[in-house]
């Protein structure tokens, strides 16, 4: 049951982030078509294509975390004994959580400020608090992923993690 939920959530992450970016790309495409075939283009399309692509990539930071795609320096790390590696990894993940919390907290504060100030975008007068809503949302998605990775470091006393990390490459 939990496994299935996990699989569905993983699929959700992929389609949600990839889908948002793809919508953004489609809006750019639409604008080019409008310009060349109908001699008109909409700055609102430029604006929203950017929003969609930023939404997708910011939410996608959780996907990149899940798939270990954020670049790390492991010149020191790989020289440590495997037991120490695990604990350093635990610390690195906790530091990551701090970043996630900071990002989510101040992201929400930003949304709150935009909401109360009623500030809108320059081109299409779209409420900015909605645009920035992705910050707390992506922050929570990010924190969730670090927590699942941290859980893996502790699961079965770290046995699973050791097994996954003892082989080279």
């Amino acid at each position: 049951m939990i496994k299935r939920l996990g699989r569905s959530y993983k699929a959700f992450e992929d389609y949600f982030c990839g889908g948002l970016v793809f919508i953004g790309l489609s809006l750019i495409m639409l604008n080019v078509i409008l310009r060349y075939f109908f001699n008109q283009s909409r700055s609102i399309l430029d604006e929203f294509s950017t929003y969609f692509m930023i939404w997708g990539t910011l939410a996608g930071t959780a996907v990149a975390l899940r798939d270990d795609h954020h670049i790390k320096v492991d010149m020191l790390f790989i020289r440590l004994p495997i037991k120490l590696q695990r604990w350093v990894s635990v610390i690195a993940h906790i530091i990551g959580i701090f970043f996630g919390l900071f990002y989510t907290f101040y992201g929400s504060q930003l949304v709150g400020r935009y909401y109360t100030s009623g500030q809108v975008s320059t081109d299409s007068s779209f409420p900015l608090w909605i645009v920035y809503l992705i910050m707390p949302v992506s922050g929570l998605m990010f924190i969730f992923r670090i927590l699942t990775k941290l859980y893996l470091l502790f699961k079965n006393g770290g046995a699973d993690w050791h097994r996954a990390n003892s082989g080279e490459v």
Binding site: M75, F77, V88, F99
Partner: peptide, 9 residues
């Protein structure tokens, strides 16, 4: 980054 925190973070 030396303790394996991603470069971005």
């Amino acid at each position: 980054f030396l303790i394996n925190v991603p470069i971005a973070i």
